[in-house]
């Protein structure tokens, strides 16, 4: 994919890069605003103003967005469930950099660092390296000893950890990632306890003396009535 096309791919799905889109492609502001309606998350007027302000700003340069796109794809390569583009991970990182300004400097410095490192070692910027060379660089910053405090580790390691964290959270909070993870909730249903095969797996069971106390889900729709001592009659 040509650089310009891949910018377009990143930007098209994103309101985060909307101003960029508007200036580069002449898409009207009205159209961009309409694309925002998929974000329906019950904001107050003050919160809407704040988030609109963030949407209207652009933090990363186009080159930085491209580098991020490549990095996120290396962190989570596409599989049968989906890709970081499906999950709009780069757009999330753009938004969070504006929402949490303390992310800005480390994210930007790290992106500059990896291009410098690429230039020094392979005489080219990161996204123009072949994947073997890219991974050679990542291999030196991608691993850490979890017994150490992250803040004590070299900055490139901290930076890559931040990018990895944002990539992971971006993917696994998106529709494709939630499906891949297997989270099945946030949906109207009836909870009637841990499935029997899971109880068996862990050698657990519900107390016999408790079983009569739990809600009988077949009677949940019958209006509650009690005797004077608080015993449920229905």
């Amino acid at each position: 994919m040509k650089r310009r096309d891949s910018i377009k791919t990143i930007a098209l799905a994103s309101f985060g890069a909307s101003l960029f889109l508007e200036s580069c492609y002449g898409v009207s502001r009205e159209k961009i605003t309409r694309s925002l309606t998929r974000y329906e998350y019950g904001r107050t007027p003050e919160e809407t103003l704040y988030d609109d302000k963030l949407f209207a700003q652009k933090f990363f340069t186009n080159d930085e967005l491209l580098t991020l796109d490549k990095l996120c794809n290396l962190i989570l390569p596409p599989n049968e469930f989906g890709s970081i583009r499906d999950a709009e991970v780069v757009q999330l990182i753009e938004f969070m950099a504006k929402d949490i300004p303390s992310y800005q400097e480390p994210l930007r410095n790290g992106l500059a660092w990896i291009d410098n490192e690429s230039q020094t070692r392979f005489d080219n910027i990161f996204i123009d390296l072949d994947e073997t060379s890219q991974k050679e660089i990542l291999d030196e910053i991608a691993y850490y000893d979890p017994n150490h405090n992250m803040n004590d580790l070299p900055e490139p390691v901290q930076w890559f950890n931040l990018v990895r964290n944002l990539t992971m959270t971006g993917y696994f909070t998106a529709e494709v990632g939630i499906k891949e993870l297997g989270y099945k909730g946030n949906f109207p249903n009836v909870w009637d306890g841990v499935p029997q095969d899971v109880l068996d797996q862990y050698g657990l069971e519900y107390d016999k003396e408790w079983l009569d106390k739990f809600v009988d889900q077949s009677k949940r729709n019958i209006t509650a009535e009690w005797d004077d001592d608080g015993n449920l009659l229905t």
């Binding site: 309101f15 985060g16 998929r38 974000y39 329906e40 998350y41 019950g42 988030d51 963030l54 949407f55 999950a87 709009e88 999330l92 938004f95 969070m96 929402d99 959270t169 971006g170 909070t173 998106a174 529709e175 939630i178 946030n186």
Partner: peptide, 9 residues
């Protein structure tokens, strides 16, 4: 609402 309905998830 699933997390992805919010721009900050």
């Amino acid at each position: 609402k699933p997390a992805f309905h919010s721009p900050r998830r």
